[in-house]
């Protein structure tokens, strides 16, 4: 089975769009004009990904300020607060403060995605190639400040999943979007203490939505236990997939990766979204070939974190580079 290529998460917001947003914020541009700018850049993004032959991708997430916003502004019981550093990056997000039991009246994000899907359809891209992206339960809970006695970390994770994620998946499935990307950098960064709860929540989501494919996108490091946990979950339930950050993993992780592959989809992140340095095929290919022979199901090559940590010019180069790697690998696999 040929390897496929995946883009996920937030793509660098182009400066032209950033300028339009600033103009809109200061009352110098109408909502209609801003919408046209969003559409123009979303269309450009889809054309790029389609042209490069990406098998699945986000809609660029141009309306997002970070992985939590604007989602959290639509969650009752949550207040959007001050800036907080996003893990160890020179990148900040508005922190969610949980002040009471949460509520979620409508699937805000999947409705937002509808606009992008109409652009995708016009370009001949089917909705099943476009993913819905959300902060995963663990990442949301560990980055929120829980100020209410209604929740502890685990009960908040469960409630966020049941109220917000479920609602968004329902909304997405109605539009034909099956790939649900749940961003989970906290799995690599925060350690193993809550992994059992995380596993239970993901399995519950997957059971409740058999038509959806639930992806845990892990980055900013490699957590062997986290990968093992998703392998087991994906073996039990075929609709769980996971992305493993092999860029920030120790070399030894490549030796065990073959054993950590489940029967669901897997994304192997080989492109570093936090450096402008270009990866070399000769460094990566030998490691990948050790793994490829062991895997029968959907295998994607991808980048680790969102590409927004890069200047747009470099993000494009890296997307092209990943495509070239995939072509070379598939040729070599075919020959052998």
């Amino acid at each position: 089975m040929p390897v496929m290529i995946m883009q996920h998460g937030i793509y660098p917001r182009p400066r032209g769009l950033a300028r339009a947003i600033s103009r809109f914020s200061s009352g110098k541009m109408s909502q209609e004009d801003l919408e046209r700018v969003y559409e123009r850049y979303t269309e450009r993004f889809f054309k790029l990904l389609k042209g490069l032959g990406y098998d699945r991708f986000s809609d660029g997430m141009f309306r997002w300020d970070d992985i939590f916003n604007p989602l959290i502004s639509g969650i009752g019981g949550v207040v959007v607060d001050g800036l907080r550093r996003f893990y160890d990056n020179n990148y900040f997000f508005r922190q969610p403060i949980v002040r009471g039991r949460i509520s979620y009246d409508e699937p805000k994000i999947s409705r937002m995605l509808v606009k992008s899907l109409s652009i995708a359809r016009n370009l001949g891209i089917e909705p099943n190639r476009v993913s819905l992206s959300l902060a995963g339960p663990y990442t949301m809970a560990t980055n929120a400040l829980i100020e209410t006695s209604d929740y502890n970390l685990e009960s908040f994770m469960r409630d966020y999943a049941e109220k917000v994620i479920y609602s968004e998946i329902e909304g997405s499935l109605k539009e034909g979007v099956v790939n649900i990307d749940l961003h989970e950098p906290s799995i690599a960064v925060m350690g193993n203490a809550k992994l059992n709860t995380v596993r239970e929540i993901y399995e519950e989501i997957a059971r409740n939505f058999p038509k959806a494919r639930i992806w845990a996108i892990m980055y900013f490091g490699y957590n062997r236990e986290g990968v093992r946990m998703f392998r087991e979950a994906s073996t039990r339930l075929g609709n769980i997939g996971y992305v493993v950050d092999m860029v920030e993993a120790p070399e030894s992780a490549w030796n065990e990766l073959g054993e950590l592959l489940g029967s669901g989809g897997i994304g192997i992140a080989i492109i570093n979204s936090r450096t402008t340095k270009m990866e070399r095929y000769r460094d990566i290919a030998p490691k990948l070939f050790k793994v490829l022979g062991r895997y029968e199901s959907d295998l994607y090559l991808t980048h680790n974190a969102s590409l927004e940590f890069l200047p747009e010019k470099i993000a494009v180069r890296k997307l092209r580079l990943l495509r070239r790697f995939a072509i070379k690998i598939n040729r070599k696999v075919q020959k052998s």
Binding site: I21, D65, Y91
Partner: peptide, 10 residues
């Protein structure tokens, strides 16, 4: 310099 990178928001 390759171009701007977002630090927060816009």
């Amino acid at each position: 310099f390759y171009g701007p990178v977002r630090v927060w928001g816009n």
